[in-house]
Each structure stands twice: as structure tokens, then as C-alpha cells.
Design a protein around this nucleic acid. Structure first.
Lengths: 248, 248
DNA sequence: CGTTACGTTGAAGCCAGTCAACCTGGGTGG
DNA sequence: CCACCCAGGTTGACTGGCTTCAACGTAACG
């Protein structure tokens, strides 16, 4: 189940910075398509700048054993960022969906691991390429910075949730967030898809599977959500669920 | 107690980007002095690029009412980033000390407030100035990016702490972190200074003042720390405290 | 010397964790 | 095809760690 090496379409994980000549037309594109556009960037001799990676369900994408410096873009699938404590406690730091970015710092080896929740497809941009892109294309720099500050805000929301919210509020927050991200990606909001198990949700919200399950039931009983199967949920009133998540 | 307007030494909170001509010599300086060095950056006509702000204890520095886009640098004092929930629950997201940076995103109004824990002194760099700096001085860009990824890692640590750790482990984590930051800033490690009250620590760790107090007592009883007065703590064995924080 | 804010300690209550039983659906093999 | 297994989800009963409520101690300040 847990990760072997990832299948790599092209074998250059950390190549020397190519002489990039960018297609810097039509840059006023929306957020999620910008990620997609980045994948089209090529060098002067028409070589793609990004490394393409395919990761099967459960495979490790990044870990302490593999220090690096650069940015992943998630094209398809779902990625989880997590950290294990010595005694087996797991904390899921973030879930990444198509269009999301994953920064991997250079300083010291990172304190988290990343693996595929479902079969996924990603691109890797090495640090020096990112540097070059940020230097030569201000729009890309702005995009990357926007994204990283968005990540910060997201983590701040999670901190408030883990620090001060009750179980039901946490689950309500989780569903609201999933719904928001889903429509941010241009998908319909009605069936909110849960591409992860209860124990993943639990480790994400700082709860146990049982408590997550109970909170789901409670939300159903209160008439906030209903579920056909256990991988999809229908939210009756998004506003109401959101204010429930904020303790109102 | 809670914030009036901050005293501003120079009255341009969001000025037009000046024609910056930078002193880009001697850039191989260490982390904390780099922040200090940034304050020395001037425009072509010798005007300082940064806005200087003084904030008294308890004054608000940034809030939802004051949307902006740029970077604060903390020169002196201590700043807390926090979020209030509607019913009064408070979550402290981060404490900032001299040398730390505070990014304020542009997209939508931020979901946190910042205020001075003790009398503080900061610099403000508006978004367009930051942009210009990042474009013209790659070292500054690298420094800023390093700092923001460091922030991310820090928030990730907090998430693990709030999500999966017991009360004593949280306090141990807190003290370890303070100690680390203190020696990162070139200060002696021996008396770890606590420039905040128990209720601040509580809101930072997702606990109550009582539980924080009990955990301190427990750490004393276990022989991990000792305290002369309640604003300074002596850690007997930093390694041991750190591993305690990791649940070992 | 009283007041006030903050910290500590104790006792009781509650929310979420733990343990366990049961259910369901999907895969396997007889 | 059905019996069987197994992993994941739900629900119930009990436990435990943190919160809540409350009393007391202590230091700063007028």
C-alpha cells in the first residue's frame, strides 16, 4: 500500500535550468487554468520545462528521504500532505486537488510527506526553473505568490478550526471548504465529493473516525446534509453550514 | 486596551512605487540582519522605501477593516496574529518577533488581525515596492521566499500540535519553539523569555489558561523546566523537552 | 492597604476518545 | 451462486483528558 517509487514519464527530476524562452502571450487567464498553462511552458529548443509524474493510489510523492527544492502542480487526482508522529499518530496537513501547488522549500528537509490519495498526475518544476520563471515572467511570479499566500490563509483557517472548534463545527468547516474548492474548480456544487476515507477526514480535523461519523450523523439529523452513498454528500444550505462552521 | 490608530512616523501607508535604486552590495548577510538591512533600502533620491510604524502594547496593526497588500517587518517588540470567532473564542495563529515578516495578501481582505503584544516597532513595505524589489534584486526575492516557506513550515508544525498532541506536549512544543527562535535571533537560550500571558499561550495552543498552568507545573514536577519568575523559564535539557513535544 | 489582574490549584462536568458490537459492500474461492 | 472474509462505516456504552467553575495566592499599583 505505502509508496514505491513514482512512475516518471521523463527522467530528469532536478535538471539544470534550460534556456527558457517563454510563450508569454495570453496571460490574463483564470486561476486554475493558469496552472494548466504553466505546463505548456517550453524551453528555447521546444523541450517542456516541467517533469511529468504519475503516482498510483498510496504512492509517496515527496518525503524527508527526498529533499528537493521546487514546485509540484497537481493536474489530476488528489494528494495528501501529512506528518507521522513517532507513536503512529497522524496529522494531515492539507489535501491538494487539481490546480493546486505544492511548494517544497530548500532550507532543510521538509517535515512532511506527500502521497497520492487516488491515482494522480502531477508536474514538477525544479527550483532553478521556478527562479528563472519568476525572474523573467512577472505574471508567473504574481501567480505563484498569490497561490502561496492563499496556502497561508488556508492553513490559518485550519489552525482556528483545530484550535477552537467543536467536532460538528470542524466537520461543517470541512464540507464547506470542499464545496468551495469544488466550485472554484468549476465543478457543480451539488454532490460534494469526498475522495477520502473517514480516517483521513479524522486525521485532517484532529478527531477520530468515530467522532467524524457521529458528526456526519448529527449534521444529517439536523437537516444540514444528506448522503446517497458515503462518497458524496448533498449540502442543503451552504450559507447555513458555513455559519455553523463558524460557531453561529 | 484594544487598539486605537497606530502612531506613524511617516505618513505614507501605501505610496506609489518610488524609483528605487538599491544598495545591492554586501548581500551575503545572515537571516535576521537581512531584515534589518531591508530597512536601509532607499530610493534614487535617498528617500527611505519603508514606512516606519510604532505600536503601543495592545494596539491594532492590521485588521479586516484595513485591507492592504505588502509586507511588515518586525524590528522590535512582539506581534500576535489572531482570529476571533463570533462568540468570543480566540485563536492565536502566530507570534512574531524581531526579524520576522508578515505578509498581507492582496486578494481579499485577510481573515486575521494583528496587534502588538508589547510596545513594538515595525516597517511597512507596500505591495508594489515588494514587487519592484523582487524583480530587481534576486537576493531579496530569495530571502522573501525563504521566509514565506519558513512561515508555511511553522504553521504546519502548529497544525500537528493542535491536531494530535496532548496538553503537556503542546506546552513542551511551545517552549522548544521559543527557545529555538531565541537562539536563532542570537539571544542566549538560558532564560527563555515569555513575553505573553498564560491566556495568550492558551489561545495559541488551543487550550485554556488553567490547562496551560497545570502543564507548566507538570513540566516542573517532571524536572524538565524551572522558573524563577513567571516571565522567564529555564529549560534543563532542550533535547529531552523537544522529544517530549514529539510524544516520545 | 485595598483593588485589580493574573496565576495556581482543586473539584466537578462534559466533550471527544476508547473499546466493542454490528452492519454493509466488495472481493474471493469453493 | 453462495458462503466467507475483510475493510470501512455506524452506533452504543464507558472512560479519560480537558474544560468549567470556584477558591485562593501573589504581585503591581494607586
Amino acid at each position: 500500500m505505502a509508496g514505491q517509487a513514482v512512475t516518471k514519464a521523463q527522467p530528469r527530476f532536478q535538471p539544470a535550468a534550460p534556456d527558457t524562452a517563454f510563450i508569454c502571450n495570453h496571460l490574463n487567464v483564470s486561476r486554475q487554468s493558469f496552472s494548466h498553462w504553466l505546463n505548456e511552458v517550453v524551453t528555447a529548443d521546444k523541450q517542456p520545462v516541467a517533469d511529468v509524474l504519475n503516482a498510483l493510489r498510496g504512492q509517496q510523492i515527496y518525503g524527508p528521504k527526498r529533499p528537493a527544492n521546487g514546485v509540484f502542480i497537481i493536474n489530476e487526482g488528489a494528494i495528501r500532505l501529512f506528518r507521522m508522529m513517532a507513536d503512529g499518530r497522524r496529522a494531515i496537513i492539507r489535501s491538494l486537488f487539481p490546480g493546486d501547488l505544492l511548494w517544497v522549500g530548500s532550507n532543510d528537509l521538509q517535515a512532511f510527506e506527500a502521497e497520492a490519495v487516488i491515482d494522480s498526475h502531477l508536474s514538477w518544476f525544479a527550483g532553478d526553473i521556478i527562479n528563472k520563471l519568476m525572474h523573467e515572467a512577472p505574471q508567473i511570479r504574481a501567480f505563484l505568490l498569490d497561490h502561496i499566500t492563499e496556502d497561508l490563509r488556508c492553513l490559518q483557517n485550519q489552525l482556528v478550526t483545530l484550535g477552537r472548534k467543536l467536532a460538528v463545527e470542524r466537520v461543517a468547516f470541512f464540507l464547506t471548504m470542499l464545496a468551495a474548492r469544488q466550485c472554484q474548480r468549476g465543478m457543480p456544487i451539488d454532490p460534494v465529493l469526498l475522495p477520502m476515507s473517514r480516517s483521513e477526514i479524522a486525521d485532517f480535523l484532529g478527531l477520530t473516525t468515530e467522532t467524524v461519523s457521529r458528526s456526519f450523523s448529527q449534521l444529517k439529523a439536523m437537516g444540514n446534509i444528506s448522503a446517497q452513498d458515503q462518497g458524496a454528500v448533498h449540502i442543503h444550505d451552504v450559507e447555513r453550514l458555513a455559519s455553523l462552521a463558524d460557531g453561529l
